[in-house]
Computed example of a mutant assay.
Amino acid sequence: MTVFVLGGAQTDFARNFTKEGRGILELFAEVVPAALADAGVSADDVEVAHVGNLAAELFTGQAQLGGLLVAAVPELDGVPSTRHEAACASGSTAVLAACADLEAGRYDLALVVGVELMRNVDGQRAAEHLGSAAWAGHEAVAAKFPWPALFADVASVYDERYGLDPAHLGLFAEHAFAQATLNPLAQARDWRFPAGAFGLDDELNPVIEGRLRKQDCGRITDGAAAVLLASPAFAERLGGGFPRIAGFGHRTAHIGLAEKVAAGGEYLFPHLRGAVVDAYRRASVPGPDALDVVELHDCFTITGLVALEHLGAAPPGDGGRFIAGGGLDAAGINPGGGLIGLGHPVGATGVRMLCDAARQVTGVSGETQVGGARTALTVNVGGSFTTVVTMIVQAAA
């Protein structure tokens, strides 16, 4: 059975909702009506809802987000809902749960919302809250910023195995910020950088942790994204012609980074490669050459480099050369800026990726549109590559 993406929306990731006197309730209240309007359906049509979120309890003290969704959109009163958490892959797991509901025949129209409010605390506190998705008490215990420290460890492991040129990471970041200038909803759309800001200048690009510098790191973001997913019968009632989720992969490994790295194999993270291959197989897509667009998880530049190798864009160890050769543009990778340029409200990212992939294959992505896009891949990672979710989205036949 196929699941169709009727439409969706995201908030402006540059906004600071706390400074506006707003919170998670207002994120829901803004993004859901926009998504319903884009999909051409009403709240009364929604039969089930799924919410992706990492740490609302830590950032805001708020749990029970399904009920908060109803408070924000009263027309959803009575609609069953579930909240999903898988670190930065929370949004994608919410999508997969909605797809399972539709494929089981329980419902015909599902709403998926990903949401995270993160800018209501200072950067240090935000880093500590986000560190809850690592192995608490076992890793990064002495790090000021847990996730930059852990992904700096990934960079060190990569360097030991293949060799890592920091210039390649700088090129990845430069591409992300350049694409963000084309995206009217990107957090970094108005950011400009002086010459040398993507290199080894400690003033222009200071070290954050280990091998990672400021421009290597995604930023703290407020935001929400929502999509409406439909069964074939419901999509046909609306006239058809919608993009579809043609395949997926979903795998989870040990929470500890050291334990994952110790597993070894041809690929640094075999389960990530497995999730990509699962999506290719389920969608009957032969491989990366059949992709027009990739929404790639790049919470850090090293994350993006590693992930592009695992999707098969370059052999293991050759990701840097792929980047240096202009491969990111040629392969349609992160045309809207990715997590580094667009922003990374953790629970919203997987939903935003799906929304953008669907827009790309429908040809409605404006300045970020990849010409002739028909097939897109999303790669969403939670934790230190602990939970990985991939999806292939294809244009209507």
Rank of each mutant, 00 (worst) to 15 (best):
L69Y: 03
A56L: 14
L65G: 04
T82Y: 07
G67W: 11
T82W: 06
L58E: 10
G67N: 11
T82H: 09
F59M: 13
A72C: 14
L54Y: 00
A87I: 10
G40Q: 08
T82K: 06
A55C: 12
A56M: 12
E85F: 13
G78K: 01
A72R: 12
F59A: 15
A43C: 02
A56R: 12
L76S: 09
L76C: 09
T60N: 06
G78T: 03
G40M: 11
P74R: 14
N53L: 01
E47H: 03
G78E: 04
S81V: 14
G66W: 06
Q64P: 01
L58H: 06
V46F: 05
V73C: 02
A86W: 01
G67S: 13
L76K: 10
G61C: 09
L58V: 04
E85M: 13
A63Q: 06
G52L: 07
E75L: 12
A86Y: 00
A89W: 04
V48F: 10
N53T: 03
G78Q: 04
S81A: 15
P74G: 10
H50I: 05
E57N: 11
D44S: 15
A43V: 00
A86C: 02
E85W: 09
G40Y: 08
L69F: 03
E47K: 03
N53E: 05
A71S: 14
D44Y: 07
V51F: 11
L68A: 01
T60H: 05
D77W: 08
H84V: 00
S42M: 12
L65R: 04
G61E: 13
T82I: 10
L76A: 08
Q62H: 10
P74C: 11
A72N: 14
Q64I: 05
L65W: 08
V48Q: 11
V70Q: 07
D45P: 06
V79K: 07
V51W: 09
D45Y: 09
V41M: 11
L69A: 03
Q64T: 04
Q64M: 06
L69H: 02
S81F: 15
S42K: 15
A56V: 09
D45K: 12
P74W: 07
V70L: 07
N53K: 01
R83F: 09
A87M: 14
P74M: 08
V48S: 09
P74T: 11
L68S: 00
T82S: 07
R83H: 09
F59G: 14
A86D: 02
Q62L: 13
E75P: 07
A72Q: 14
V41C: 10
A55N: 13
A86F: 00
A49G: 11
L68V: 01
Q62F: 08
L69M: 08
Q62V: 15
L58P: 03
L54K: 00
V46P: 01
G78L: 03
F59Y: 15
E75N: 07
E47W: 05
A56W: 13
D45E: 15
V73T: 05
A43S: 01
E47G: 02
F59Q: 13
E57A: 13
V48P: 03
V70E: 09
